[in-house]
């Protein structure tokens, strides 16, 4: 057991960071009813990564910055495009999401296939490989994770106000658009840093599932945050262990474990609720 932890110490460190920031960001996304936006941003950031690696393979010496930067940049563009498309379809604003989902995926597929077909690369970016991370990944994740957390801690009140009461926040003079834009940048950063370990197809699951689980049991915003972090870190650790033990895909295992957590909380709650009703009836 200890050897296992030592062998995959980078994976464990990364999963601790990711397991904290993903549900943190996810809580704000879910509460603002933007949970589908995570999908769009992750698809867009995938195409950014594809463009980055295409440029990297064309340009011989590597002054191309890390792929995460391309990913973040594209994810931000994606968020802006969502807004732009929403205005273009005034009475069907929800259609902007599937359009951009398709565009991001199509672009990344074409870019990846332009570089000598689908190789190991695209698999790693689609579905992630947490067990294969190295020291550089850990440093990138650590830096971006710290940035995200610091921005959040500094602006917690502002984010909270904008999320729950837009009108009130305007009254007390919070620059709403700036805060919203910052939130989008944070989401983009989180996604592009998580893609390496969980994979772009599964990032939004990690952002949404733990939050959905704790939404079932928590009674306030703070407990929502805490519980969702607890659930996500638990799921990631168990998933990491299982995927190593049975040689399964890491990202998929993590998502399945968090889905199991969700399901069991749901069933326990339902069962408990019904028995309490039955009890109250008997009285």
């Amino acid at each position: 057991m200890l050897e296992f932890i030592y062998e995959f110490r980078y994976a464990f460190a990364i999963s601790l960071i990711v397991g904290i920031i993903c549900p943190f960001v996810g809580t704000f996304i879910v509460v603002r009813r933007l949970s589908v936006i995570g999908e769009v941003l992750s698809n867009m950031s995938l195409s950014g990564v594809a463009l980055g690696s295409l440029l990297g393979s064309i340009i011989p010496f590597s002054f191309v910055p890390t792929l995460q930067i391309y990913g973040t940049f594209f994810a931000i563009i994606g968020a802006l495009l969502v807004e732009w498309l929403r205005k273009r379809f005034p009475s069907f604003s929800e259609i902007s999401i599937p359009i951009l989902l398709a565009f991001g995926m199509g672009l990344s597929v074409v870019l990846f296939s332009a570089m000598n077909g689908f190789n190991v690369n695209i698999q790693a970016y689609l579905f992630g490989n947490l067990l294969a991370v190295n020291k550089t990944d850990l440093i990138t994740t650590l830096v971006i994770g710290c940035v995200v957390l610091i921005i959040f801690l500094l602006l917690y009140k502002e984010f909270f106000a904008v999320t729950f009461d837009a009108e009130y926040s305007r009254l007390i003079g919070i620059p709403r658009r700036l805060i919203q834009f910052l939130l989008i940048i944070i989401i983009a950063l989180t996604i592009s840093v998580t893609v390496r370990s969980i994979g772009s197809m599964l990032v939004s699951g990690l952002m949404v599932l733990p939050v959905a689980t704790s939404l079932l049991i928590s009674r306030g915003f703070k407990s929502l945050l805490l519980f969702s972090m607890l659930f996500s870190v638990t799921a990631i650790f168990i998933g990491l262990f299982f995927s190593y033990l049975f040689n399964l895909a890491t990202g998929g295992t993590i998502i399945l474990i968090s889905a199991l957590l969700f399901l069991s909380v749901l069933l326990i709650k339902k069962w408990g609720f019904q028995t309490s009703i039955a009890n109250s009836k008997s009285y």
């Binding site: 949970s35 995570g38 579905f127 599964l202 699951g205 949404v208 895909a249 295992t253 998502i255 399945l256």
Partner: peptide
């Protein structure tokens, strides 16, 4: 009150499930 949550959950779970099966 969060109807739209169901969608990303189903998306993620089905992808996760498929990835695990494919790796098996």
């Amino acid at each position: 009150s969060y109807e739209e949550l169901a969608l990303p959950i189903i998306l993620a779970v089905s992808i996760g499930y498929s990835v695990v099966l494919i790796s098996l």
